[in-house]
Amino acid sequence: MREGKRLGRVIWAPVGAAVLSGLVIGAAARLLMRGIALAVGGLTGMSLAGTVGILVVFVVLALPAAVTATARPVIMHAGRWVTAALTGLMAARTGVSDAKIIVLADDGQLTPITVLIVAFAAIVVLHGRLAQYLTRRLRTLPESPAEVLPTPDARPV
């Protein structure tokens, strides 16, 4: 029975961590995308389908980092960088599709656009780190509430 719980943690901790980090980083990315649209004076509407799609993509992209969170350091770093590379590639591809708008931006718009792009780069790197951190935390949670609370026999007299 104990082995089954351990196996469940090995499987569910990375999945839960990927979901949590994907939702957090995906939401941050969606807000930054909206910020860039505001900075260039473009359309600022956010559709529910587009937002859900972005969140799902970020959840999936967090899986390599989450799955390798407790592996040997070389594998752990490789998993983190695979997540960062895939997330960065996706972000750059999306940014290139809007490059015409950014290139034609006024000088007053360049500073906010640059700040938002740097923020986007930061969350790309943070994506893998957050997934691995959450995986390690979820794997160390107590198995049941009884492990957290002291038993009546364990109280000092």
Results as ranks from 00 to 15, higher is better:
F120Y: 12
A92M: 13
A27M: 09
I25R: 05
G4E: 00
A13V: 09
I75R: 04
L32A: 10
A84V: 01
A17Q: 00
R9A: 00
I11A: 05
A71F: 09
G45K: 15
T44I: 13
L138H: 04
R72K: 13
G95I: 06
A17S: 10
P14W: 01
A122E: 08
A37E: 00
P112M: 11
P14T: 06
Y133N: 13
T151Q: 13
A49L: 13
L32S: 09
L104C: 12
I117F: 12
L138F: 02
A85G: 09
V10Q: 01
G8I: 11
L23V: 13
H77V: 01
M46H: 00
L43E: 14
D153C: 00
A17G: 02
G16M: 01
I123M: 13
P145M: 01
P73D: 08
K100W: 11
G128M: 12
L63C: 05
G95V: 11
M33R: 07
T70F: 03
R2K: 03
V157W: 15
V15M: 08
G41N: 05
D153E: 11
A62T: 09
V124D: 11
V52S: 06
L61E: 07
V19K: 03
T140Y: 04
L20Q: 03
Q132E: 08
S144L: 03
K5E: 06
S144M: 07
V82C: 02
V124W: 08
L126P: 05
R155V: 11
V82P: 05
P156H: 07
G95P: 11
A39I: 06
Y133Q: 14
G95S: 01
G41S: 08
W12P: 07
G4F: 00
A13K: 02
R30H: 09
R2W: 01
A27V: 00
P112W: 10
L130Y: 04
D98A: 15
I54Y: 10
R9M: 07
S144D: 07
R6V: 12
L55E: 12
A122M: 14
V57H: 02
L23Y: 12
V115N: 14
L55Y: 07
L110F: 07
A66W: 09
T44D: 11
L7G: 01
E3C: 04
R80L: 08
A37D: 10
R93I: 14
G42F: 11
A122G: 14
T114R: 14
A71H: 06
A85R: 01
